[in-house]
Design a protein around this nucleic acid. Structure first.
Length: 574
RNA sequence: GCCGAUGUAGCUCAGGGGUUAGAGCGAACGACUCAUAAUCGUUAGGUCACUGGUUCAAUUCCAGUCAUCGGCACCA
C-alpha cells in the first residue's frame, strides 16, 4: 500500500555560504513534500549533500592557502547547520567527497564506458604556466574580436553577447594570475548524449504530469544536444577509472559526479541504517517514484543529462517528476546567484536564522516564494506576512482558543450534542486533509498553504459566530462544547501545518498534551571511512507519530497555560 | 543574435477558450472583546501590457510590438 518515494534534492555547492534563494528553490519545497509524504504513510527517502568538487573550490582553496578538502569541510559544516536549523528533514545529507561516492561514481563511469556511451577525444585546452593549471573558459579573459571589449570572457563577451572560444580572444590572460595562457591539446572523455536523444524525447514526451514549462524547456534542449565532456584537467575530484598516466591530472567533471550522488547517498543511507541493500527498494523498484527538486538553472541536468546517464546504465529508475523552482530576486529583478551572493542584500541563511525563527521563514518562502515565477525577497514583506498572516490568523487562533479554555476549564471540555454549526466547522477542517493533500501531491505548495490558512480562518469565523466568551457567561455547557470543537480544529490544523511549520507544529503538539514527535529533531552523525570521516545530517522519521488524517483530542485532557507559537516582529530601525 | 519565460485589482501573486476574472494583505465602513490592538462581516468596480488573427466566444490559443528577466555547452 505504501509507496516508496525518493525525494532527491539538488546538491548545494560547498564553495561558500548559502543564501535564502537557495533554500527557497530546493530546500523548503522538498522538505514540505517529504514531510507530507511521510505523514501519508509512504516510505520516503530524502537525500542530498554538498557538491564538493569543481574549479571554484580549488581556486578558493589556493587563494586562502588551504586544501580543497579544508574549504569544503568548512562550508559543508556551515550548510549542514543551515539546513538543520531550517528543519530540512533529510534522511541523509552527505557530501560528494566520500569514498562511497567515489566508488559508485567510478563504477557508473566504467559501466557507461563499457556500454559504449563514453568516448575519449582530444581537444584544445587553455593552459596557464603561471597558474600551473588548465583554465575553464570562464577563467580566461581578453579582448573581444567582435566588439573590442577588453574584458570579454573565454566563453562569452558580456558586452556584445557573442559566444566565444578562448582561442578567439585577443591578448588572452588568466583571470587568476593575469598571465598569458597557451593552448595545448588535452584528452577528455565525453558522454555521448546524441545516442540518447530519441529515447529521451520519447520519455519526456510521455510525462503527462510534468509542468509544461519543464517539459517544453527539456524538449527544446533536445533539439541540439552535443556530446558533453565529463572530465576536466583538475586534481580535486573523482579520479578517472581508466589506466594511464595521462589521466593522473584529470578528474570527473563535477556535474557528472554530483547527480550520481542521488544514488550514492541512497547507498550510504542504506549502509548507515544497517540494511545495505535497502537502497534497491527505491532505485531498482519500478513502483518507486522519484521526485527531484531544484532551481530552474538545474533543469537540464535533471531532465536530460541524468536521465540519459540512467538510461545508459540500464537498470535504475528514471525521475518521476522534476520539480523546478524559479528564482528569488531582489527588488528590481536582480538575479541572486551563488556567484554573485557577496555584496548584494539577500541574507545568508545562517545570518537570517540567527535573528529569526525558522517557521516564519518557511512560511514566507512557501507563500511568497518562487514556485512558478520569480518572486521578490523583501524583509519588510517577510515581517508583514509574519505579523498580519501567520501571527494574526494562525498563531492568534491557537492562543485565543487555548487561553479561553485554560481560563475557564483547564482541560478539554466534555461536549454536549453538537449543533449543525459545530459539525460544519469540524467538517471544514476535516476536508482540508483532502484538499491540502491534493495540492501537496502535485507539488503545489503555495496553493496548499493558502488552503491550510483558509481552514484556520474558518475556525476564526466559527468562533466569531458562536462567541463562546459570551455564551460561557450564561451557559457553561454550551460554551464548553464550542471550545471543544475549536480545540479539535486546532489539534488537526496542527497536523495540516506540520509539513510547512514543523517546529511550531511540534510545539502545539506538546501544548495539546500529545505524545512523541510529530516532527522530530534532526541529528548529526559521524561516519568513518578508511581515509576520512565526515558528518551527515539525518533524522529518524520512522519514530514520528503524525498521520495525515483526523485525530480526536480526548475530552478531559489537562491543558497548561499556553505560550505563543509566533512572535510579532518589528522592522529593524537602522 | 538564437531559444525561452514573464507582463492580471494599491501591493505580492493565483488562475485559465465561455455564466458577474480570483486570493492574501492594504484601504473604507461596521461588529466583537476570548486572543499577540489579534478576530469577524460588508465594500473597494482591474480595458487580465499593446496591436492584429483564429473562433459562435479570448484575459485565457496564435502572430507581431513594447517592457522586464533567464538560458545559450566545459559555471555550478
Amino acid at each position: 500500500m505504501s509507496k516508496n518515494i525518493l525525494v532527491a534534492v539538488a546538491w548545494p555547492y560547498a564553495s561558500g555560504a548559502r543564501h535564502l534563494g537557495h533554500v527557497a528553490g530546493f530546500g523548503v519545497p522538498s522538505d514540505v513534500f517529504a514531510r507530507y509524504q511521510r505523514l501519508v504513510g509512504n516510505n520516503v527517502l530524502m537525500v542530498s549533500g554538498t557538491d564538493d568538487h569543481g574549479t571554484p573550490i580549488t581556486v578558493r582553496a589556493e587563494r586562502e592557502g588551504k586544501t580543497p578538502r579544508e574549504v569544503t569541510d568548512f562550508y559543508n559544516a556551515e550548510i549542514r547547520n543551515n539546513l538543520r536549523d531550517l528543519g530540512l528533514s533529510y534522511d541523509l545529507f552527505t557530501r560528494t567527497s566520500t569514498e562511497n561516492h567515489y566508488q559508485i561514481t567510478q563504477a557508473f563511469f566504467t559501466r557507461l564506458q563499457e556500454k559504449g556511451y563514453i568516448f575519449a577525444k582530444e581537444m584544445i585546452g587553455t593552459y596557464s604556466e603561471a597558474d600551473k593549471r588548465f583554465l575553464p573558459d570562464r577563467y580566461v579573459e581578453g579582448t573581444c574580436p567582435h566588439c573590442g571589449y577588453t574584458k570579454a570572457r573565454g566563453d562569452q563577451c558580456d558586452n556584445c553577447g557573442k559566444q566565444l572560444d578562448p582561442v578567439d580572444l585577443i591578448e588572452p590572460r588568466s583571470t587568476l594570475s593575469g598571465a598569458t595562457p597557451i593552448f595545448k591539446p588535452t584528452t577528455h572523455f565525453f558522454l555521448n548524449l546524441p545516442a540518447f536523444v530519441e529515447r529521451l524525447r520519447e520519455w519526456i514526451s510521455s510525462q503527462e504530469h510534468w509542468r509544461p514549462n519543464v517539459k517544453r524547456f527539456s524538449l527544446g534542449l533536445l533539439e541540439e544536444v552535443p556530446a558533453r565532456a565529463i572530465t576536466r584537467d583538475l586534481t580535486w575530484g573523482v579520479p578517472i577509472p581508466v589506466e594511464g598516466d595521462e589521466f593522473d591530472g584529470k578528474r570527473i567533471y563535477v556535474w557528472f559526479d554530483a547527480v550520481i550522488g542521488y544514488l550514492s547517498a541512497a547507498v550510504e543511507w542504506a549502509t548507515k541504517v544497517g540494511r545495505p541493500e535497502a537502497w534497491r527498494e527505491w532505485w531498482l523498484n519500478p513502483e518507486a517514484r522519484h521526485y527531484y527538486f531544484m532551481g530552474k538553472d538545474n533543469i537540464v541536468f535533471h531532465s536530460v543529462i541524468w536521465p540519459a546517464m540512467l538510461i545508459g546504465h540500464g537498470e535504475l529508475e528514471l525521475p518521476y517528476e522534476v520539480v523546478s523552482s524559479e528564482f528569488l530576486t531582489l527588488a528590481g529583478g536582480e538575479k541572486i546567484s551563488s556567484s554573485r551572493a557577496e555584496g548584494n542584500s539577500i541574507p545568508f541563511v545562517g545570518e537570517f536564522l540567527a535573528q529569526y525563527d525558522p517557521d516564519p521563514l518557511r512560511y514566507f518562502l512557501v507563500i511568497a516564494g518562487p514556485e512558478t515565477s520569480d518572486t521578490e525577497w523583501s524583509l519588510s514583506e517577510f515581517i508583514r506576512r509574519n505579523n498580519e498572516e501567520l501571527v494574526a490568523t494562525w498563531g492568534n487562533l491557537v492562543n485565543r482558543v487555548l487561553s479561553i479554555t485554560h481560563k475557564n476549564f483547564g482541560h478539554v471540555p466534555t461536549p454536549q450534542a453538537l449543533t449543525a454549526e459545530d459539525e460544519a466547522a469540524l467538517a471544514t477542517v476535516r476536508n482540508a486533509f483532502e484538499t491540502v493533500g491534493k495540492e501537496l501531491e502535485q507539488a503545489h505548495f503555495k496553493a496548499a498553504l493558502i488552503a491550510t490558512m483558509a481552514a484556520a480562518r474558518s475556525v476564526n469565523e466559527y468562533l466569531a459566530s458562536q462567541e463562546p466568551w459570551k455564551v460561557l457567561k450564561t451557559d457553561r455547557e454550551r460554551g464548553g462544547t464550542i471550545l471543544y470543537v475549536a480545540l479539535q480544529a486546532i489539534n488537526n490544523l496542527r497536523t495540516l501545518f506540520t509539513p510547512f511549520l514543523p517546529f511550531t507544529s511540534q510545539k502545539l503538539h506538546e501544548l495539546l498534551g500529545n505524545e512523541g514527535y510529530l516532527a522530530g529533531p534532526l541529528l548529526f552523525e559521524e561516519r568513518q571511512e578508511s581515509q576520512h570521516s565526515h558528518e551527515v545530517l539525518t533524522c529518524e522519521p520512522s519514530t514520528w507519530v503524525g498521520r495525515w488524517e483526523w485525530s480526536d483530542l480526548p475530552a478531559g485532557r489537562e491543558l497548561a497555560a499556553p505560550t505563543v507559537l509566533f512572535k510579532k516582529l518589528e522592522l529593524p530601525t537602522e
